[in-house]
Design a protein around this nucleic acid. Structure first.
Lengths: 260, 260
DNA sequence: AGATATTTGTTCGTATGTATT
DNA sequence: TAATACATACGAACAAATATC
């Protein structure tokens, strides 16, 4: 059954969106559609000509509105026959990118990040111990093998440091608590992206590396044994030493900066 | 003379942005400009005709790109002479709304939220104790007066509960750690929306209220005395009690986020 | 206070690219 | 291979908002 036109009622159904221009207003209207028609990821929105008719807006405006939804990660556009705008789940990485924008102009220090990591990461693995699967443990073991051997070059040094952070991202993605998982993943991502950290990672740092390696072994052992409290302790120790090392490095680098 | 293929030169001027369409690619390019030209909030981007020339894109495309940046909260558009796209700070509320979108289809439980609050809020006030100003303490005292007296109706009950969460948002906004502050604020916001949408707080709950009142007095006392460890303990106790009470009424957040 | 110039906002018509059949 | 259906992009014109004189 086709439901032809809620057409011109829309211009009136839509008046009281103060402060927004047409495209944003259209985007909000489409959002409302999604809500009260209960559309789920995978469902398709009407096509552009249809939207133009239904919302009484031109192509350009419709496109701007869809762009809004797309950058919010709510829909994904596809070309070709059968194409159009599809409702999609908002991926962690996109949400992380958006959130990273928020901290674009704020100064987030390494100290700020580690203050959170020290609190959250131990809790994360503590919860994880009770429900982690053997397949997931295997995945963690697999990641570890990446940096089995000491780095031979600066590039390898940085690669290993990145891999270590991705180990934490993997842990985060396994959490049953979406909030906790997302935040831990985001913190790891911030460390990966932060300019200051990049400089830190450029120098060899065997101390941090060895600490990382031994803790990971202990952590995996504790996780596969389902030993929550040991996992918690191991992670906490690791975070504390990592914090110390990173803060020392940060201080050193800023000192080097000042002397220029 | 018409120049048919501006498109060609663009593919070369703007290489290696795989998978993105033109508007998104343009948006990324503009972002890069912002970064390496060191543009700060308040600075202005070139105007549309200029951007069209510089990026070799049509007006519609430029507008889509600017729309992307606008919905990400990175720029704000203004009409009229001297108007254009202005770099802007990304407000906490917008970032929160975007992040809330991310949890639109996920199920976040009250248990999930409180697991984080128990860890983070105590740390927040502990840090706060060392640098809070007397003006800020006055503001907190002022907020408390809102719910001095027991609620007379269901509506007042809910209002007081909201005010209590806004007390936490105020605390969060005072943090010197932007990450910690943002996350605590976001958690309070989640609970607030949860309250509005799911009517969890509709029943009178004198136990929670009294616990809240007495803890706030103790907290403010500790903060104005600069007593970090007491502030930490007080908040931790409060969070634990609140968690117990709330878990009794545990319900899951489903949708209701998008309307923000 | 009002006219005007400047700049974004919106629309239409059309052409091109791309994936499905 | 050709035909189709859809998004994607261009360009020109017009409408609305707003600062300046």
């Amino acid at each position: 059954m086709k439901q032809p036109a809620t057409i011109q009622s829309l211009d009136e159904a839509m008046p009281s969106r103060r402060g927004l221009n047409r495209a944003q207003s259209v985007a909000e209207t489409i959002k409302d559609w999604i809500i009260d028609r209960g559309l789920a990821p995978g469902d398709r929105l009407p096509q552009e000509p249809q939207l133009m008719a239904d919302l009484g807006a031109s192509k350009g405006t419709i496109r701007e509105a869809l762009k809004v939804l797309e950058t919010q990660g709510l829909v994904r556009m596809r070309t070709g026959p059968g194409g159009g705008a599809f409702i999609t789940d908002v991926g962690d990485d996109l949400a992380g990118a958006l959130l990273a924008n928020h901290f674009f102009f704020k100064q987030v220090s390494i100290a700020d990040i580690y203050r959170l990591r020290i609190l959250l990461e131990p809790q994360l693995v503590k919860d994880l111990a009770s429900h982690i699967s053997s397949a997931q443990i295997a995945e963690l073991r697999d990641r570890m093998s990446t940096y089995r051997e000491p780095p031979a070059s600066i590039e390898e040094e940085r690669e290993q440091r990145t891999a270590e952070l991705e180990f934490h991202e993997a842990l985060a993605s396994m959490s049953k608590n979406p909030l906790l998982g997302f935040i831990c993943g985001f913190l790891a991502r911030l460390l990966k992206d932060l300019a200051v950290c990049r400089r830190i990672y450029d120098k060899p740092n065997p101390e941090l590396r060895e600490s990382g390696l031994s803790y990971q072994e202990q952590l995996i052992a504790a996780l596969s044994a389902g030993d929550a409290s040991t996992a918690h302790t191991v992670m906490q120790d690791h975070m504390r030493t990592a914090q110390k090392i990173m803060l020392a490095q940060e201080a050193e680098i800023t000192r080097a900066f000042l002397s220029m």
